[in-house]
C-alpha cells in the first residue's frame, strides 16, 4: 500500500465490494482497516447502525454499509471487513463485504455519477471511475458522515464532558 506514496494522495482510493459492485473511498480519510469483530448492538437506532466496537479501548460506532445503501443483510464471512473512516477526529466504522485494493486513479478518468440505475442512493456517490474492466463508484465520505451524524445534529441532548473522546 505504501509503494505509491509518490502519487498524490488525492488520487488514491481504497476499493471494496458490496455485493457485485465496486466502491472506492479516498484513502486519506481512512484510518484503518480491521477484520470483522464483535459488535455491540445499540438499541433504538436504525438497522444500518450495527452498534459499537471496541477498537483498542476506543468505542467506535459501526455502520452496515449494505443496509445503509438499502441492500440486503448478509451474514459476515471471512472477507467481511470494517473500514474505519476518520473525519474531524470522529471515527466511524463501515462494514463492507470485501476490501479489494488501493487503486490510483487519475483525476481525468473520473466522471459524473449516473443519476439512476445504481442500487444505492446516488447522493453518496461523488464520481465514477473505470479501473480495467470495472466501474468503481467513488463515495463521498463527508456525505456519508453527515448522514450518520444527523442523529446528533437533530438534537444534542447529551452533554459531553471535556474528557470525552
Amino acid at each position: 500500500m505504501e509503494q505509491n506514496t509518490l502519487q498524490s494522495k488525492k488520487e488514491r482510493y481504497l476499493t471494496f465490494y458490496l455485493g457485485n459492485e465496486q466502491y472506492g473511498i479516498a484513502i486519506d480519510r481512512i484510518k484503518e482497516i480491521i477484520a470483522m469483530m464483535k459488535v455491540t448492538h445499540i438499541p433504538k437506532t436504525p438497522d444500518f447502525m450495527r452498534g459499537v466496537i471496541n477498537l483498542r479501548g476506543l468505542i467506535i460506532p459501526v455502520v452496515d454499509t449494505r443496509l445503509r445503501f438499502g441492500m440486503e443483510f448478509r451474514e459476515p464471512d471471512m472477507h467481511t471487513t470494517i473500514v474505519i473512516v476518520e473525519v474531524e477526529k470522529i471515527n466511524i466504522g463501515f462494514i463492507v463485504d470485501r476490501v479489494e485494493e488501493v487503486a490510483s486513479i487519475d483525476p481525468s478518468h473520473l466522471s459524473e455519477p449516473p443519476r439512476f440505475g445504481s442500487h444505492i442512493d446516488t447522493d453518496f456517490i461523488c464520481s465514477m471511475a473505470q479501473i480495467e474492466e470495472n466501474v468503481v463508484m467513488i463515495l463521498d465520505v463527508l456525505k456519508l458522515f453527515e448522514a450518520d451524524e444527523l442523529v446528533s445534529i437533530e438534537n444534542i441532548t447529551q452533554t459531553h464532558t471535556s474528557q470525552g473522546e
Binding site: 438499541p43 479501548g57 468505542i59 466511524i92 446528533s152 441532548t157 447529551q158 459531553h160 473522546e165
Partner: peptide, 27 residues
C-alpha cells in the same frame, strides 16, 4: 466511562459505554 461518539449522543437512555474485562462493550 467512554462516550459512544457524537452520532449516538442523541440516545437519551444511554450515557456512554464501558469496556468490560473480556473486551466487550457494555452500555
Amino acid at each position: 466511562i467512554k462516550t459512544l461518539g457524537q452520532s449516538l449522543a442523541k440516545l437519551k437512555e444511554i450515557s456512554g459505554g464501558a469496556i468490560l474485562g473480556n473486551g466487550d462493550i457494555a452500555l
